[in-house]
């Protein structure tokens, strides 16, 4: 039954990859990347049970945390064109 779950998640990943290729904006692609990250965590959990080695779950948790950070970094870069941008500075200059 873990095989069923893994196959379903793989099908879902393929669908989301199609969305990532079709775009059309960069934000659609970021959304698709984030969804792939979510699905990858679930896939890692399912594979952990499929192979009888639950250690995969730790990999999944780490992957999830890294996924959030990379997504925020990409969004920050496309919003400000700079990873070292400081939101506090903007507020001070506006005031």
């Amino acid at each position: 039954m873990f095989f069923v779950a893994s196959a379903a998640i793989l099908v879902a990943i393929i669908l989301v990859v199609v969305r990532a290729i079709r775009g059309p904006t960069v934000f659609d692609r970021v959304l698709a990347a984030n969804a792939i990250g979510t699905l990858a965590i679930l896939l890692l959990a399912a594979i952990g049970f499929l192979t009888g080695r639950p250690e995969w779950l730790d990999v999944g948790l780490t992957y999830g945390l890294l996924n959030l950070i990379s997504m925020l970094a990409v969004l920050k870069f496309f919003r400000h064109g700079d990873l070292a941008y400081d939101g506090e500075e903007e507020r001070e200059t506006k005031a």
Partner: peptide
């Protein structure tokens, strides 16, 4: 059921 909703969500994204 979970697999079904996962595929549905992915299809919805398309």
């Amino acid at each position: 059921l979970g697999s079904f909703f996962i595929i549905t969500g992915a299809a919805g994204m398309l």
